[in-house]
Design a protein around this nucleic acid. Structure first.
Lengths: 319, 319
DNA sequence: GGGATCGATGACAACGTTGTCAACAGCGGG
DNA sequence: CCCGCTGTTGACAACGTTGTCATCGATCCC
């Protein structure tokens, strides 16, 4: 900028004015400055600008894994909203490790992001306190983070309840539940919804029909159940990865899965799912965040998005 | 930092030393400083640090769309490599719009990223010249960008050639090609590979069997071909999205698709594909970039990754 | 014609950090 | 006892930008 000023024969401040399109610069002068900028290939140094102004025009996004379509859907939606607000997105994958999440968040904070959107990995988010107190707004997405902070989640219980009830209505009395590790909030909620649905139908909850754990374990778990004395006649899967794992086992059991996925309609039979809307979730979280960044007042909000049952065949099979 | 120094009763510089774990600080003093840091919830201001030191420890990544599994695979791999180098990833989706790509790149540059990985959207990347001259290394991924810059791409021609030849070997003499818009590098290359394969087999290239355009158009195009006088007996699809579009039409034509996708093996018949490895592509690009960032010398490299034919049934059907 | 107003421009400090260099105390060797 | 060395600490400038305030000539109104 100094060089530009020298080349254009004006003061530093005038260049600054031109670059920021501030009013009150003689068009002729501005023209001279612009041509000098062009000639020298000058680019404003954003770090210095941030240092001086305090606002970075960027937000941090911590998800579990960009390569998972559910999270990349969120990611894209957040990016779009950020773009509309002239903001950039710093993002990172926590891989479900609380330590990595914490690391990412702190890195983002020391880069002075204007706000954070976090898919919480662990349960203890106390490390966020100082940041929140320092005035960095945060939004939890997909799962609550245990702090009094804006949160956007799905109706996990309700969705699972709907899906399981759907199977029961089609005549199943023994529905298995295959969920992700019980330590994950969404998995626990969905399990709760499953139990409620079974109870509400007046059926006994049989714990031998429930298996929680990482997706890789779901297939074997189902196989064991089917080999038992009183096997399930249908299965409800707790998320997209588990649904796929079960499909891959080749058991052609009637099923309903949580999470929609591409090609679910092209399999035979089509896979009935309880769909979430990741784009909507991301959008809601980002909009909430920007409202806070712009000084939106009030207590922490908690938005719960609905789910939608999409019948495609696999969930309508009778025992 | 000033406050920390005051609280600990030491000079600014000493706090800086502690924060950066520089040697030559009395352990007792360091302890005092650390406790002050803890007490005040101090976080180093990265902008100021960047301003002072010149290195940002972050790289920029411009892809087409995070929500596309091919690109999110790349994204994840880049993130992992960056993590190993202690670097952060700024990323953005260009949506195949050259203007947006340019905007993103320039934004990244003014934030002084240490380097760029770009999936080029347009053909004119002249706007990058000043940045390159300013010493910001860049790597083009998936497609060349028309500049003399490190580039990592797939063997598009070879992959298409292999896939089409596979169909011909199974007795097809009229193979249709459905590709993405011809202006996209990879689409053009794959078309070229298709033509070569047809010619190499001594068959006539029939332009009425070729349709290029956005994925949404692929289905209707195929339907038109099939309604013609001399319809194709098999189809080669130019990328994952087009493959899915074709599958959705319900025509059960023998086919081979470029790009692997989840569940390709669960459809009936399984979908034979020519697979790329997005993770490997992302990793290669990122490693190349970091080598440059650390001052790796020499002329621009061009890496071409192989593809792999995965037979699953749809490509082995006879006419 | 004189003072007020306005438009254009510049000088300067400050943002929070780190690199450079100097200061100072304590210590051992001659 | 003096010199030089080591270990520890601090003062200060600089990074590139922007906000504040001052300057200066021109214009305008009475």
């Amino acid at each position: 900028m100094k060089d530009v000023a020298a080349a254009a024969g004006v003061a530093l401040k005038t260049v600054s004015r031109v670059v920021n399109e501030e009013p009150g610069v003689n068009p002729a002068t501005a023209e001279r400055v612009l041509s000098a900028i062009e000639r020298l290939g000058y680019r404003r140094n954003e770090s210095a600008r941030v240092l001086r102004r305090g606002r970075t025009a960027s937000i941090g996004l911590v998800i579990e894994d960009v390569a998972d379509p559910f999270y990349s859907g969120i990611s894209r939606a957040v990016e779009d909203v950020a773009l509309r607000h002239g903001s950039l997105v710093l993002s990172g994958s926590s891989g479900e490790e609380p330590r990595r999440e914490r690391e990412l968040v702190l890195t983002f904070c020391s880069r002075r992001v204007d706000g954070l959107i976090i898919v919480p990995a662990g349960t203890d988010h106390g490390y966020l306190r100082p940041e929140l107190d320092a005035g960095i707004p945060a939004v939890f997405a997909d799962r609550p983070g245990g702090l009094d902070v804006d949160t956007v989640i799905c109706d996990n219980k309700g969705g699972a309840h709907t899906g399981v009830t759907h199977l029961i209505r089609h005549g199943h009395r023994r529905v298995a539940f295959l969920g992700d590790s019980a330590s994950i909030f969404t998995a626990a909620e969905r399990l709760y919804g499953y139990r409620r649905a079974v109870e509400d139908a007046g059926l006994p909850v049989d714990e031998s029909l429930v298996a929680m754990g990482p997706p890789g374990r779901a297939g074997p778990a189902l196989t064991r159940m089917l080999a038992g004395d009183d096997p399930p006649t249908a299965v409800f899967t707790g998320n997209g990865r588990i649904t796929v794992a079960v499909l891959r086992t080749g058991h052609r059991l009637p099923m309903v899965g949580f999470d929609d996925f591409e090609l679910a309609d092209l399999l035979v039979p089509g896979v009935t799912v309880v769909a979430q809307d990741p784009a909507r979730l991301g959008r809601a979280a980002a909009e909430l965040l920007f409202r806070r960044i712009m000084g939106g007042p009030g207590a922490a909000e908690r938005i719960e998005l609905p789910t939608r049952l999409i019948p495609r065949g696999s969930g309508e099979l009778r025992p």
